[in-house]
Design a protein around this nucleic acid. Structure first.
Lengths: 227, 227
DNA sequence: ACCTGAACACCGTTCAAGT
DNA sequence: ACCTGAACACCGTTCAAGT
């Protein structure tokens, strides 16, 4: 006779859905890092037996793809279509925003290069990028090529950046990570690696926002220069 | 009394070494794809119990890093220092050669973005790239940044390219893979994705040598343009 | 130093059964 | 349609013991 009016809610068992499964998976990796992810750990978090998840995802790999889609959807894709903003700024703003989002879910950044980018959000980002590059004066064919080259640079950068960490939020500060890289570079013999040691201060900063912006700008320069 | 002069050789048990372990692991993924890789499968191939591998590698993750180092070492790094060749051509030649090598071991291309690029071969590639960019007129700091941006573009491209396949050699032809991408794009609604469908022929070719070369050249243009 | 033997605490995925 | 129950064939890693 307690609380018969509202459908039961306080028990752990709300009905499952793809969204709830993916959400639970995201919580698992955000709390426990990439190694914590398993069909069983997600099922446990949902108070359900492991095989119950197979109603919503075909496999562990499919769950990982949903995780990528989910985080990509969390990024602010609208920035790519911001009105009255120059095309270059829109692209750079979105790239920076995507990086921020991904670094909040570092384990997912590791998954992004291991599965095809074919979800609806990836499609939408591609569409908006081609629009922006066309506005920048590129022929449609070059706009398409440029949009892929840009995503490769951005996603590749993120994956390699996160790969140097434990991929467990919150990530160490950029400055801490730079200091660690710098310390590792100090072990190099200047006789063997003259160029690398001579540029060690910059090389230590390969994983920074500065380098990210520099690389994106270089690519934007390059794709517009040749047309 | 048979063959007592030479140390026994025909039995399956030559003594183990890091090289033999990594070699066996490479054979495992080349024959069975990325899912075939496990400490146990490599041990079985070496006719040894699983825990015997821990004399040579600290963990499965360490074995994966050795696999990346091994394939990177297989690439023709000397191309970056080819005498009497212009710096741009050397970089492009090496990028293409690295792609060829990686596509022969596609499962390893999937691993390359999940672990830090800190092996000796990665270091050597970085050193040679900085040299080449310096020769191209870049300041040391920019040469360092450019060399990382280039590796991000090349490795990111490879990972995403392989991620669309089963990552089991031999990979389907480029033309087969393009045809599959093209077929998938034909399902898109032109009303929803006008830019993407308008450029579908180019978009289908995102995973080709042509796009790879185009993107590398765009980046090379970009890093030299701004200096 | 390097391997075996045995065990521990996990995995993803399947099938049949209940409701 | 969606979940439980139970099982199968795996995992990575550890510790102690042999040689």
């Amino acid at each position: 006779m307690t609380d018969t009016t509202t459908p039961r809610r306080r028990g752990p068992k709300r009905s499952l859905s793809l969204d709830r499964v993916v959400e639970a998976a995201l919580e698992v990796v955000d709390e426990g890092g990439p190694t914590a992810l398993s069909i069983r750990s997600v099922a446990t978090r949902l108070s359900v037996l492991p095989n119950a998840l197979y109603t919503y995802v075909a496999s562990r790999a499919a769950l990982e793809r949903q995780l990528v889609e989910r985080v990509l959807a969390e990024s602010d894709i609208a920035l790519l279509a911001a009105p009255n903003q120059p095309w270059r700024g829109r692209i750079l703003d979105y790239a920076l925003s995507l990086r921020t989002t991904m670094l909040q879910h570092p384990a997912v950044a590791l998954l992004i290069m291991t599965a095809p980018m074919d979800g609806p959000s990836a499609l939408l980002v591609g569409e908006r990028l081609i629009e922006a590059f066309t506005e920048g004066g590129l022929e449609p064919a070059d706009a398409s090529r440029a949009s892929y080259a840009l995503m490769v640079q951005v996603l590749g950068f993120l994956a390699l950046e996160v790969a140097e960490t434990e991929a467990q939020p919150p990530l160490p500060n950029e400055s801490q990570r730079v200091a660690e890289r710098r310390a590792a570079l100090d072990f190099l013999d200047a006789e063997d690696w003259p160029m690398t040691t001579a540029t060690r201060d910059v090389t230590a900063q390969w994983i920074t926002t500065d380098q990210f912006t520099w690389a994106v700008n270089a690519l934007l320069d390059g794709v517009t220069a040749s047309s």
